[in-house]
Amino acid sequence: MTLLLVAAGAAVGAPTRFLTDAVIAHYAGRRLPWGTLAVNTAGSAVAMFLAVAVTDPLWTALLATGFCGALTTYSTLSYETLVLAEAGRWRAAAANVAANLACGLAAGLAGFALAHLATG
């Protein structure tokens, strides 16, 4: 049951990442991987909000493990960083990792704080 909920959440989260990336690349181009930064930031905020606000393990499986887990990605982050480094764009590669970490942590903290405010 839990596994099915994880799969169902991911079946929505992964295409949401794919579409978000397409929309952002349409406006911002593909010189820098903005799409991955956007989904990783948003997913971190939602996951940290859920970590506080949701206690039912089934909802956690669907929304946090499934949806947020598949909305965000580490493999694409690693690959895109490597592509920048291979092109000799070392500063962009380092900035990409730093931006994902900083934005993910800041967004996670915001989600965490918001959930505490909302649940009292």
């Binding site: 996951a47 887990g69 965000t72």
Partner: peptide, 8 residues
């Protein structure tokens, strides 16, 4: 892979 669980 997941970035949200990593941040969590």
């Amino acid at each position: 892979t997941t970035f949200s669980t990593y941040i969590a």
